Simulated scan of single mutants.
Amino acid sequence: MKKKEQNLPTIIIDEHNPDQNKYELLKEKLRYKQALRENSKKIDHKQVRLNIQADALPSKTFFIMNALAAIIAGYGLLADSTAVVIGAMLVAMMLGPISGIALAFIDARWILLRTALSTLSLGVMMIYSIGIIMGLIHFDLPITHEILARTKPTTIDLMIALAGGAAGAFAAVSPRLSVAVVGVAVATALVPPLVASGILLAHGQLQNSANAFLLAFTNMIAIQVSSSLVLWITGFRRGSDEEVNSIWGFIKRNSISLIILMILAIYLTFNLIQSIHKQLYETQIKQQISQSLNVNNNVIDIVQFDPRENFTVVRASIRGDLPPTYAEIEKINTQLATDRNGHPSYLQIRFIPIQIIQSRALHSVHLNDQEAQELAIGTGNE
């Protein structure tokens, strides 16, 4: 019998013993204690450091998998398919070098920092280049909603990246969690915006391309900072005792990242406030138009906003029986809310008349005005 087996508790059970239930209860208690021991395993700091350092190296696997992820994400973006974009995360490997940077800051290991930064930079350039190439090859395809969705970074994206980086770090140090599960989730915050930025650059949309790249850069910084914080909390600290045990030590070693993160947070908060004001303005305008024009069997299909230098044009497409008059439009214009810059809003109507066509004469269904209006509005919203 091996030495480990000699230390394990052994219970011999007699099937004819009336105290069988007591023995079963004792077995369950022993299993529970074993589960507690398994769940309370200490972090193997040496092994975790080796794993993070290995993932931060510029290996063939890193480049192959991220190239495939960029191609999958690119076609998902061009096809406007959320499912395909999410599928790209299954093969991406962008968390490794970011975790390497986080550990390098915490442990003050500058060789590891240079290696991880080099790996991350090469990976970003490769993914970005693939995005540009795909944008040039499929230049005739339109810019989809999935691409444009990554051109408006806000504080919400920053908070998501912070949570994702913390989850990735906890998975890396935990003996019972798989870092791959969290790593693929973190990769979705990096690969799609980089590819989207490359596609937009190929189409000459410089502002949107810069915003998509800003989203990816924000995610990188946020993931690194939250990963560093988790590693520091879980005992990954090298240096003098005074510096290691002080929060100022963490701030000092991550000062550059924290300063960049604060600047990004201010800018993204400004973006979020602008986005909220825009949504409130558009919602108010749509409610005002709906109250005034959803009458006489008319149904509003689409409302679009075209901001100009000194005013905003509100274009509304309406289906119905009776077009609104010029006087009605003028009256609505005097009541419309001003845009975000305080400039007036002017309504422009595209009216689509409805004509009933049938193959043979049918008896008319007589409805009063209220019933006809409810029927038209209900049909238009289906």
Rank of each mutant, 00 (worst) to 15 (best):
F305E: 01
F305L: 05
D306M: 10
D306Q: 13
D306A: 10
P307S: 08
P307L: 06
P307E: 04
R308M: 11
R308L: 15
R308F: 14
R308G: 12
E309L: 09
E309H: 15
E309R: 15
E309W: 09
E309I: 13
N310S: 10
N310A: 07
T312H: 08
T312P: 01
T312E: 03
V314Y: 04
V314R: 04
V314C: 02
V314F: 02
R315H: 03
R315C: 00
R315L: 01
R315E: 03
R315S: 03
R315V: 07
A316W: 02
S317L: 06
S317D: 15
S317V: 10
S317G: 05
I318P: 01
I318E: 04
R319T: 08
R319I: 03
R319D: 06
G320I: 05
G320M: 09
D321I: 04
D321A: 14
D321P: 02
D321M: 10
D321E: 12
L322T: 15
L322M: 11
L322Y: 15
L322I: 12
L322Q: 14
P323D: 06
P323G: 03
P324E: 03
P324V: 10
P324M: 07
P324N: 08
T325P: 12
T325N: 13
Y326E: 15
Y326D: 14
A327K: 12
A327L: 07
E328R: 06
E328K: 05
E330F: 15
E330L: 15
E330A: 15
K331F: 04
K331H: 07
K331V: 00
I332A: 04
I332Y: 05
I332H: 07
I332W: 06
N333T: 00
N333A: 00
N333G: 00
N333P: 00
T334P: 01
T334L: 07
Q335E: 07
Q335H: 08
Q335W: 05
Q335A: 01
L336M: 12
L336N: 10
L336F: 10
L336P: 06
A337Y: 00
A337D: 04
T338D: 06
T338A: 13
T338P: 00
D339Q: 09
D339L: 03
D339C: 14
R340G: 08
R340C: 07
R340V: 15
R340N: 13
N341Q: 12
N341I: 07
